[in-house]
Simulated assay, not measured.
Amino acid sequence: MTKIQFKKEKISVQNINRMRFWIGILAGLVSAISISLFFNLSRETFRFLTSISADLLILKENELLFFNFFFSFLSAVLGLSITIWIWMQNKKHNRPKDRIYKNLSVTNALLIFWVILMVLSRFGSILPIVLFGAPGYDNHLNLYEEYWILFVLMPIVVFMQSWFAVRLVYQAGSWIFLSFLCCLLTAFMLQLTTAVNQDELNSVYHLRFHKDYNYIDHELTIAKGKYGVSFDNHTIEVLKKRETESSIQQIVSVKKAFSYDMPVTMDTIILQKIIIRNYKKGSWSFFRRNSIENWPYALPIDILKQLDYFDPNSNQAIELCDILKEMIDLVNTPEIHWEECQNFTETERRRSFGAKYHIPDPLIEQLKDVRERLLEDDRYADFSNDFNAINDRE
């Protein structure tokens, strides 16, 4: 009479086959390292692509550490899936259904491996291109703060799912615990060895706008030392952004402050001077061509109105006149021909293009009128003579 064994055996190196065991370990480790490198390099690649059309996505220290560990732990458990896939292809069957269960384990390991990679590849490519790279994006979707639990659960689910079908063949309680410890150890090693330093890309990006940042830091230092005006970190951070929603709102708020029938504060004046100097984008709307509404900054006539609120020799009056000087310099920005573009900075090219195409004619006429009125006013004789003549457009 044939003896049929129904009890599951404990998983062991002998049941798997010693050669297959070590091949599985090696393949899993190589897979984990490769996947971790792929995740980290892909993240930096997509960050670079988003910086072309929008502000560079810069992760905070805690966010960067969290996602580095997520990539490392997920890579480790995906490597475990490859290991189990190789282990369960052994031909030693102790029970009638072992062949079916092992085929199920092999299929399950490959399925969970490719499904997770497909999901991450799909969402990891769509979000940077469609959302993070869109002009105006300002961290509206904070994955770290709002959906951190998903990133914690995903590696755990992959780990448990990888062992699910194996337990139909073997008793694997101790091996599950040991493999979990090995995955944790591997994740820590991957985080230390395969993580990509985001400061390298950040430095390259900041180099594109180093003149903007240097000017901002210089003016803020002068404002604090000369006028006792200081700005909070959030205001400075927004001031250094290009096309985020908060940056646009800051520019709109500063312009509105000049239009009110009340004196503006010194910090608002400093902000307006910096914004004009760096020629920041100030609106998503575009009115008819040569409409003065297309001008995103304070109008010259509003600056003239503000001058009436202050003593001509006051610090506010001096800075208001500096704003007019920055406007004149912007209007007079010479054209940069395309064959010479590489010889100029990002800001210089942006100012040149804007001066030629985006400054409305009524604004230039208003600026000329304000300049003439200040030149004729003896109260501003000390610094109005520094106003350069406004060039006519060709």
Rank of each mutant, 00 (worst) to 15 (best):
I149A: 00
I275L: 09
V204M: 08
K281Q: 09
I251C: 05
L220E: 10
T83C: 13
R371A: 08
K280E: 03
Q161Y: 00
V252R: 14
A109K: 15
I301M: 15
H218W: 07
V119Y: 14
E243N: 10
D302A: 02
K273E: 03
E326V: 01
R371Y: 08
N197S: 14
K226V: 14
T347G: 05
N388S: 05
W87L: 01
L307F: 11
L111I: 11
F188P: 09
I274G: 06
V370F: 07
M88T: 09
I156G: 03
V152P: 01
Q171D: 14
P360F: 04
N139D: 06
E200G: 00
L299D: 14
N233F: 01
E61L: 12
A32D: 13
P128Q: 08
F70M: 00
Y213A: 06
L184E: 09
E243D: 06
K256Y: 05
N139W: 04
S34V: 11
F209C: 04
P312V: 07
P128W: 03
E293T: 10
I11D: 02
G228Q: 12
E245Q: 03
S34C: 11
V252S: 15
G133C: 10
L41S: 07
I236E: 03
I359G: 05
A195L: 01
F46M: 09
Q161M: 02
W338S: 00
M262P: 00
D377Q: 07
S34I: 13
V238Y: 01
P334L: 01
Q366L: 10
E200H: 03
L220C: 13
M160E: 12
P312C: 08
E339S: 01
T235S: 11
F48A: 12
N17K: 09
F164A: 13
E243F: 02
A27N: 06
F310N: 04
Q89F: 05
Q5H: 15
A109N: 14
K10N: 12
K10R: 12
E44I: 04
T345D: 02
H140R: 13
D199L: 10
I390R: 04
S246A: 07
I23P: 05
R208C: 01
K280Y: 01
D361F: 08
K226T: 14
W114G: 08
L111Y: 12
K256R: 08
Y213C: 03
P263S: 10
R393L: 09
D392G: 02
W22I: 07
Q171L: 13
E200P: 00
E44Q: 05
D302Y: 05
D55L: 03
S203P: 01
K211C: 00
S36N: 15
F387S: 08
I323H: 04
Y147P: 00
V254W: 02
S105M: 13
P312M: 08
I82M: 11
N90S: 15
H218L: 11
P362G: 03
W85K: 09
E394H: 09
S31V: 11
N332Q: 11
V204F: 05
S125A: 12
V157Q: 09
N343Q: 08
P128H: 07
L127C: 03
T50D: 06
D377A: 07
D55M: 07
Q250Y: 04
V229P: 02
E237C: 00
G124L: 09
R350P: 00
N391P: 01
W148H: 05
N391G: 03
N103Q: 15
A134H: 06
Y170D: 07
L220T: 13
V166C: 10
R350T: 05
H218A: 11
D361R: 10
D369Q: 15
Y215W: 06
